[in-house]
Design a protein around this nucleic acid. Structure first.
Length: 825
RNA sequence: GCCGGGGUGGUGAAAUCGGUAUACACAGGGGACUUAAAAUCCCCCGGGAGCAUUCCCAUGCGGGUUCGAGUCCCGCCCCCGGCACCA
């Protein structure tokens, strides 16, 4: 016999009861045989978090809730939804925090993870806690290392000396992606250049495929665009500019505009370019050296700040323009970057804004070689003409040839003389994975004087990260592991002689490039991913995460999967069929930040309103892919909705009535099911919730008491957003199991969605003058007759002649009339 | 500079195969119930005029197409992201 207390909605009690039950019953967990045999597998993935000491922030909760809503929705529709979560706990983030607080990361991380687990349970995520990953667990990073070894064996990993971004504050090398306009992404310190031997993964080998596949994956447009731009394919040619007076030397330039080569009046090398020494004349050497020193000392930030001034110095050397045969001076300038193309350009000041500015600043000749319609060879150039249209002028036998044709013809002709070839260049660089840090998986390589870089044999993996109490990096650029002699001194696996382990660790993005492959296979400790299970569950069906990883994580994981596919380990080459980037949450119109002190602390809100209300409110704020504005008072809306839902299903006085639903309410119900189903599928959660609110309002309108058939389907629809209350109400409706077991998503009966009558807006000359109610599907004449009978419509038709009738069935009638000239005047 | 996304009530936001602009919710006002409070329920709530039927104006600004434009086209302004000397 239920007491009054039992009949009041107590979110905290309900939520704890069901969370405990889910754990006890394994509601969300897959046993190995279930993973092997699931009939309608659906892999619902969300980006695993870095377990910070602060705990889950509202941004995490927003993202996870949005992903969880989708997963629960698919499950209610009868899919076997696998929804794992894990921890991305290696990396600079953890390490810097540990350095700041003085607590070793190996002691810090477990507590953080425990706290995250508690919070993730508390918000009611449908997580399979029997299949989680922790990237710092040797049982996980053993396979991260294994992947590196596969890359090495397949020629996709190589060590090379390269200019790298060095952060003097974090004392480490950064990937290009971690440098934000010349500053360290983490600490904002200006980045310097250093030359170090690094391990690179050859992602540029896959640039074309990574680009081509973008056409056939279902991802957010913004994310696709970001990847497209990041890969940055440009088609052009490599032209050879022989060095005057040195037959064997030639400056290679890359250009997308070979048609402008007749206008190339000088050549510019990046200051770091290897040919600078060779072309520099003795008289210019001092100035060149000074400029190079200045460039090197100048960090990238300073280099960008003076973007207007084009500085540079003449080397004293000359090249031969391959098209004109004339000598052109060779300069060095910092506006030419060593990291792109060949690190050298042919400067065409007439048709490139940067070259134009530089030529002006240094008195170099500017020649027009392209004429737009209405221009000719002598039309003055007040600015560079950069458009890729027009015809050639001042270009010898190519005069009058259109740009497109000239591009091909000139390259073809120069190619026959060995002075050019077509070429495609990418903005994308190979992926440097070496980190001179401590908190990461050691790169599994042993360096031997006789055998070179030897991969650690797979049976010896993992190469465990030794415990080092003082892991502070130092200025030497050598990893802290290089101070642990007893760890790195090992015999060469190949020849047995004394050798040394690689002392760099790998980039955190390698950890996260394959974690989704591991989730369903965590039951196996003898393989990274089981073939059969992987075939069943991957690729990921739906991936939801932040667009801040649009190019980093998402591109690297695509690359890793593509490479593993080519090696025969996987039978698919794209990891995520669908990806959706969620929006960001702001608060009261302002960005949240610790310094402003306006960060939302989730725990007290959950304490007060419950996780269901919090989830519902977050999803109600705005379209999930666009984010929303969290206004503190707004939460009472969704909170009241759940209360009313509870009271409608668990009436304070007596039992929930049975019997047939009211026909009008039933129509509304089926229309609501239709809308909600469609809107959740498209991640338009805010309007789905609004539709449910609207329906509940209709159910309770005028204080009416609903019957069971009117509210039971609503319990199913609200379940993705508010799973705990849904379980409780489902249970109280007399069902034995979880609402999430057994495809309980309500069915929409389309026949019931149809209304009997339509309200039609009646316009006269496009302005609404009244509405009429007609049977659905009523013909034009019938509608017109009714409309004319409407007093206000009739008034506006008075003294006029209807010239035209526009009838949109069941929606609108527009009577177009001639202006009434008779009346008045 | 380039590439995205967006400007709609007091506020968060609905409505984009062109067809009754402002759904849903917050805030605000009024009322019912109640000893009271909470909860619940009902009514009002873009601006202006009017007792009212009703009329005019309004989706960042200016034009255009159309019977009809928040939605399409042209030209601007502003805000938020991302990229940025990429040859």
């Amino acid at each position: 016999m239920p007491s009054n207390v039992d009949n009041a909605y107590d979110p905290s009690a309900v939520e704890h009861r069901w969370q405990a039950k889910w754990d006890r019953d394994g509601t969300n967990a897959f046993a190995l045989d279930e993973l092997r045999s699931a009939e309608r597998p659906f892999f619902n993935l969300m980006m695993f978090p870095y377990p910070s000491a602060e705990g889950l922030h509202v941004g995490n909760i927003y993202a996870f809730t949005g992903a969880d809503v989708y997963g629960r929705f698919k499950r209610l529709q009868g899919y076997d939804v696998f929804e794992p979560i894990g921890f991305d706990a290696f990396g600079i983030h953890s390490e810097n925090f540990a350095l700041k607080t003085g607590v070793h990361p190996s002691r810090l991380i477990p507590g953080n993870m425990a706290n995250f687990r508690r919070q993730l349970r508390r918000i009611g995520g449908m997580f399979d806690w029997t299949h989680t990953v922790d990237t710092t667990d040797p049982d996980y990073y053993r396979w991260t290392q294994w992947i590196f070894v596969q890359f090495l064996k397949n020629g996709l990993a190589e060590k090379k000396e390269a200019p790298v971004n060095w952060c003097p504050s974090c004392m480490t090398v950064l990937a290009n992606e971690q440098v934000i306009v010349g500053e360290c992404e983490r600490c904002g310190t200006a980045v310097e250049q250093r030359f170090i031997h690094q391990w690179f993964l050859r992602i540029t080998d896959y640039a074309d495929r990574l680009l081509a596949n973008l056409k056939r994956i279902d991802w957010s447009d913004t994310t696709l665009k970001a990847q497209y731009n990041w890969i940055g394919r440009s088609v052009g040619a490599q032209l050879h500019f022989p060095v005057a007076g040195a037959d064997d030397l030639s400056v290679e330039v890359f250009t997308t505009r070979p048609d402008t080569v007749f206008g190339a009046t000088y050549v510019v090398l990046a200051p770091e370019h290897p040919l600078v020494d060779a072309v520099t004349s003795d008289s210019c050497r001092e100035a060149v050296e000074a400029y190079r020193a200045r460039t090197q000392a100048m960090d990238l930030v300073a280099r960008k700040k003076i973007e207007k001034d084009k500085t540079g110095v003449f080397t004293g050397g000359y090249c031969v323009n391959p098209a004109t045969g004339e000598r052109v001076p060779v300069w060095i300038a910092d506006y030419v970057l060593m990291g792109y193309g060949t690190g050298a350009i042919m400067a065409v000041p007439g048709h490139d804004e940067r070259d134009f500015d530089f030529a002006h600043a240094h008195g170099l000749p500017i020649i027009r070689v392209i004429a737009a319609p209405g221009e000719d060879a002598s039309t003055p150039l007040s600015i560079a003409y950069e458009y890729p249209t027009g015809t050639l002028v001042n270009s010898g036998r190519y005069d009058g040839v259109p740009v497109d044709e000239a591009k091909r013809a000139i390259v073809d002709e120069l190619a026959t003389e060995g002075l050019a070839e077509s070429r495609v260049t990418y903005r994308l660089h190979d992926w440097c994975i070496s980190r001179q840090r401590y908190w990461g998986p050691p790169i599994p390589v042993i360096n031997c004087d006789h055998c070179g870089a030897v991969p650690v044999p797979e049976e010896d993996l993992p190469v465990e990260l030794p415990h080092v109490e003082d892991f502070r990096p130092d200025q030497s650029g050598i990893s802290p592991l290089a101070r642990v002699r007893e760890w790195y001194e090992v015999p060469c696996p190949s020849c047995g002689r004394d050798a040394a382990r690689e002392t760099d660790v790998s980039d955190v993005f390698l950890d996260s490039a394959w974690y989704f492959l591991r989730y369903p296979s965590t039951d196996f400790d003898d393989r990274p991913f089981d073939a059969g299970i992987t075939r069943r569950w991957l690729p990921v069906d739906m991936y939801i995460g932040g667009n801040e990883h649009a190019v980093l994580h998402l591109l690297y994981s695509r690359f890793v999967v593509m490479a593993l596919h080519d090696m025969g380990w996987l039978d698919f080459e794209e990891p995520y069929d669908r990806f959706r980037a969620h929006g960001l949450i702001i608060r009261e119109g302002a960005k949240m930040s610790k310094s402003k002190g306006n960060v939302i602390i989730p725990d007290p809100i959950i304490e007060r309103y419950g996780a269901d209300t919090f989830r519902l409110y977050l999803m109600f704020l705005g379209p999930f892919v666009e984010g929303g504005d969290y206004q503190d008072q707004g939460i009472s809306g969704p909170h009241g909705f759940l209360h009313r839902l509870w009271e409608s299903v668990v009436p304070e006085s007596g039992e929930l009535a049975t019997g047939d639903p009211d026909p009008a309410v039933d129509r509304k119900l089926h229309r609501t099911i239709h809308r909600v189903t469609d809107q959740i599928a498209n991640l338009r959660y805010n309007t789905a919730i609004a539709a449910m609110m609207e329906y509940l309002n209709a159910v309770r309108a005028g204080g009416r008491t609903p019957v069971r058939a009117e509210v039971e389907p609503l319990v199913g629809m609200v379940a993705p957003f508010a799973p705990h209350i849904a379980e409780e109400l489902w249970h109280r409706l007399g069902h034995a199991g979880s609402v999430f077991d057994g495809a309980n998503w309500p069915e929409c009966d389309l026949a019931k969605c149809v209304e009997q009558h339509a309200r039609i807006a009646v316009q006269v000359n496009g302005r609404v003058r009244g509405t009429v109610s007609v049977p659905v599907g009523a013909g034009r004449d019938e509608v017109v007759a009714q409309a004319r009978a409407e007093p206000n419509v009739a008034r506006h038709l008075e003294g006029t002649e209807v010239r035209r009738i526009v009838h949109i069935p069941d929606r609108l009638l527009n009577l177009v009339v001639a202006q009434a000239v008779a009346a008045g005047k």
